[in-house]
């Protein structure tokens, strides 16, 4: 049986949760460990922490957050942001993270995904891809990989890059539509569907969730294995339990909250 995971995402800057709207315009939404425990209690299937700390001075702060989370939360969680080497990953995994997410560093150093998979196993390696639709010209859409928090175009095609990551040992893809992120217009379903159909590993859809029906669309039309959202949960508009109730209503298998 295929079940759909609901994953709240916590953007963390210097040890505090923030949520980016179109990756700018941040506001503080609390302590990551408290929020993680709250989502666990609501029935979240997994959690993603994205460390957006700019300064390397605060890198150890994230390890401390991971360690405190592992003391109180007994569901899987992924930590992404700033992972550039096997040693970076090891620190987070030893502190209690289950998976690490790599994004910019995977593009800059294509051997990294393979190194992480060889060292810790593919199940630990999530490749995060920030995708932007190339300007519509009437032709079928294509998407380009962006790095550095969505600021840097790479010239890489998202479909080709995601396949390459899986070949190197990625165990999961976390796919964010930059066009939709922060818009609340729903996932880029064509993007999600194409990557999911191409990749034999699980796909987490991200970017654009504004309603619970968007989660359903992501799982059905987008063929995503997991749906990720931040602000709808952080702002208290919907609980994880309500999200799961809607997915169940739509006929999808989910772990009850």
């Amino acid at each position: 049986m295929r079940s759909i995971r609901v994953i709240p995402c916590l953007d963390v800057d210097a040890g505090r949760v923030v949520k980016g709207v179109q990756f700018t315009d941040l506001f503080d939404a609390g302590d990551p460990v408290e929020l993680a425990a709250r989502y666990d209690a609501q029935g979240a299937d997994e959690l993603v922490f994205l460390d957006i700390t700019a300064s390397s001075d605060h890198r150890s702060t994230m390890v401390e957050v991971v360690s405190r989370t592992a003391d109180v939360v007994f569901i899987p969680f992924t930590v992404g942001g700033g992972v550039r080497s096997v040693e970076d990953a090891r620190r987070l995994l030893r502190a209690g993270a289950d998976k690490v997410g790599v994004n910019t560093a995977a593009v800059e150093r294509p051997g990294l995904v393979g190194e992480l998979a060889a060292e810790f196993g593919s199940q630990c390696v999530v490749v995060a891809i920030d995708a932007r639709r190339t300007p519509a010209t009437g032709a079928p859409p294509t998407w380009e990989v962006f790095t550095h928090g969505g600021r840097t175009p790479t010239g890489l095609d998202v479909l080709a890059w995601s396949e390459q990551c899986v070949e190197q040992g990625a165990g999961e893809i976390l796919l964010t539509s930059m066009d939709r992120d922060g818009t609340r217009d729903g996932f880029d379903l064509a993007l999600t569907r194409q990557v999911s159909d191409r990749c034999p590993v699980p796909l987490i859809a991200s970017g654009g969730v504004g309603t619970l029906d968007h989660l359903v669309e992501g799982a059905i039309e987008g063929a995503a294995d997991a749906v990720l959202a931040a602000s709808i949960f952080h702002l208290g508009e919907f609980t994880v339990a309500e999200a799961k109730a809607r997915l169940t209503q739509a006929g999808l298998a989910v772990r009850p909250a």
Binding site: M1, R2, S3, D45, Q123, P200, V201, D225, R255
Partner: peptide, 11 residues
């Protein structure tokens, strides 16, 4: 015919 790894909750 199923995604591998199985990375999910199951009954």
């Amino acid at each position: 015919g199923v995604k591998r790894p199985q990375m999910q909750w199951n009954v």
